[in-house]
Each structure stands twice: as structure tokens, then as C-alpha cells.
Design a protein around this nucleic acid. Structure first.
Lengths: 197, 197
DNA sequence: ATAAAATTTGACCCTTGGGTATAATTTTAA
DNA sequence: TTAAAATTATACCCAAGGGTCAAATTTTAT
């Protein structure tokens, strides 16, 4: 990548993060392209030099969010931990990414149905991969006699739902640190799955 | 209420339920007033004879959804059950309302930030009341030595999140009945709270 | 039957906002 | 230093959609 392209990419990332913040704060439709441009001292005209469309921006937010989650779980999969510890790490990782990248995750949770089909396809594929990884951990745990035999899919939905909801109430100014939340959620959500403790 | 007013109210309820379905399927901004009108064989002009504004419609969806949840929990509060059984009933009730009124709940979950301040105030107040009722049950359970001492607020958020997420994946055509889901969620989410079983 | 009230219609207004075109300006390279 | 490439600014286009209004139609009550 040339110096020029690199700088353009850097600027685009900047735009995406700003878009994520505004989408998250005001909602996709309520945040205008001009809002995003102004925030970064662009004009509406000039910001289009870097982006293709507003929808493109939304997609990039989703993609960035999913890539972070994927990177986290891929690393954990290689750790060789036992299924229960592995699942705990996944939960903690998910919580920490969520809280650390609140805007991005917020956008990707609050506006998935706004993605156009071609874009949605890509994102759904990644999300499915992510959930598939979790499923494998649970199935392995059941096989090893560490977890109770449960309907994996429902458990995944239950856990994901609990965690994803954090983006609705978490505030930087609140009394809870992301580590505390991560620990609590991991313990609470793993307990009913364990065969014996 | 006169015969006339009664019929108008009935029609408005019809409009609200249709709006809920379209808002839920397509999203608030993507569903136009004309879409809603057409669905019921009105024209855009004539539907405005029954509604004040699109925002008004959104509010009514929220209000209806919250009223159902409130009615459910109020009934349970009067049952005199022990805290653990009471909480279980609340969870089951919430799940069943959610699944039974998917559209309404979906709207109220996916678009709370679209409500204008005056409307939002009313809804937030009801939601706070609802959560306050749950909190009381948990606190009582801790006091009676049935529940572990936990940070109630976080537990409420965790439980609510898990349940509310159901609206994202549940389908009438799926293999799971609402009773099965309700039972599973109630068991899973209550277990980590119990001191002994 | 008929006047009054209720309901419906369809044309219209008007703002918002995504996106574009073109020209101006700045940066880069030779 | 100057021509080309990259970047930015301004003005503009246009469709969508919420909402209104006056007139037409239907329903109801006497």
C-alpha cells in the first residue's frame, strides 16, 4: 500500500469510528452524513471522497465489530484450555470487547436489519462462524462430561442475549468496571451448565 | 364511551397492531404511514383521521407492550409465592408475553431510542416500575436466605437481556414452543441465584 | 327524506437528506 | 516552477415520506 493509500485508509477508519459513535448515539437514520462530516471538519462533499455511501459506512462498522469478536475467539480456540475454562474466556472476551468498543458493538447490535442484503450476507456469515465456534466448545464440554447435556443453540442464544444486552445499560461513568462485569457474567452464565462443581 | 368512540378505539387498536407488525418486520423508518394504511385498506389521508402522527403510533406500541408486562407482574406479585417461585413465574410470564406478542415487544425493544422525550419519559417510568418489582423479589429472596447475595441490578440486567434477546431469534415455525423456552430460561437463569437446591 | 355529523379521498405542500457534478484549491512530483 | 494528481468546497438534484386540506362521499339521527 502506497503512502497515499495508507493515509486514505487511516482517514477512512477515522470516519468509520466517528460514524459508529454517531450511529450509536443517535441511531442510523438520525445521524446524517453531514453530521459525520462536520464532526471531522469535512464537508458532505469531501467526505464522499473517502466513502462510497452511508450504507457502506454502516457495513464497515458491522465488519469491524465482527472482526474483533472473531479475532478474540480464534485466539481462545488455540489456547488448549478445557471447555469450561474456554467458554469462560469467550464470555469474558465478548464482554470486554463489547464494553471497550461500545459504539461499534452497539451499532452492530442495534442495526443489523438495516444492512442491505449483499452486505448482510457477509456479516451473517461471520456471526454464524462465531456462534459455531461457541457451539463446538459446548458440544465438546458435554462430550467430556463437564457440561450437562443441554440444547446448545438455546444456551448460546441465552448467553449471547445476556451479554449483548450490556450495551444497553453500560456507562463508562457507572460504578462497574468491565473486568467486574466480565467476571460476574462468566460465572453466572457458566454455572447452570456445569455438571458438578 | 359512546358506540362511535368505541368503534374508533377498536379501529385504532387495529392500526396499532398493524403498525407494530410492520415496524417489527421492516423497522420504524422503513415502514411508511402509507404502508400501514394500505395494509388496512385506508389511504394515507384517512388513516390520519384515527392517528395523530407516526410517532403517536410508535408510542402506542410501546405503551401496549409495557402494559402487558406490567399486568403480568402485578398479578404474580399478588400470588403470595416464595421469592424463587415468584421470580420463576416472572421469567416465564415475560418469555410468554414476548413470544406471544412478538411484534409489539420487538418494536418496544428495537426502537426505544426513537421515542420523543415526552413519550419516552412515560415509557421509561413504566419500565423502571417493572424492574423495581423484580428487584424487590430478588432482595426479598436474599433476605429470606433463599438467594445468594448478588448485585441485584446486574442480575436483573442479565436476566432481562437473556430473555429480551429471544425476540431476535424466535420464529413461530421453529421447533420450540413458548412453554419450552419459558421453562428452560426460567430454570437456567434462576439456578445460579439459589443458595442450595 | 334530509340535514348534520362522520369518514374518506386524493391532490398537494414542504422539509430532509443521500448523493453528484463541477470548479477551486492544495499537494506532489519532475 | 509548473503541470498533473489529489483533495476539498459549493451548489445543486431529486426522491421519499410525513403531514395537511378542502371537497366528496357515506352514515346516522330525527
Amino acid at each position: 500500500m502506497s503512502f497515499r493509500e495508507e493515509r486514505a485508509a487511516e482517514r477512512k477508519l477515522n470516519i468509520i469510528r466517528t460514524a459508529a459513535r454517531l450511529f450509536s448515539e443517535k441511531g442510523y437514520h438520525e445521524a446524517t452524513v453531514e453530521d459525520i462530516a462536520k464532526e471531522l471538519k469535512y464537508t458532505k462533499g469531501s467526505i464522499y471522497y473517502y466513502i462510497q455511501s452511508k450504507q457502506d459506512l454502516l457495513f464497515e462498522c458491522h465488519d469491524l465489530a465482527m472482526n474483533m469478536l472473531m479475532a478474540s475467539i480464534d485466539k481462545i480456540k488455540e489456547s488448549g484450555l478445557a471447555p469450561d475454562l474456554m467458554l469462560k474466556e469467550v464470555i469474558k472476551g465478548h464482554v470486554e470487547i463489547m464494553v471497550g468498543e461500545l459504539n461499534l458493538i452497539n451499532v452492530s447490535l442495534a442495526s443489523d436489519f438495516l444492512l442491505q442484503d449483499e452486505y448482510a450476507e457477509i456479516i451473517v456469515k461471520k456471526r454464524d462462524l462465531y456462534e459455531e465456534s461457541i457451539k463446538k466448545i459446548i458440544v465438546e464440554g458435554i462430550k467430556q462430561g463437564i457440561f450437562k447435556p443441554v440444547p446448545e443453540k438455546m444456551v448460546i442464544f441465552l448467553i449471547m442475549g445476556a451479554i449483548n444486552w450490556i450495551s444497553r445499560w453500560f456507562s463508562e461513568k457507572g460504578p462497574l468496571s468491565k473486568e467486574e462485569i466480565a467476571q460476574f457474567y462468566a460465572d453466572y452464565l457458566l454455572a447452570p451448565l456445569m455438571l458438578k462443581q
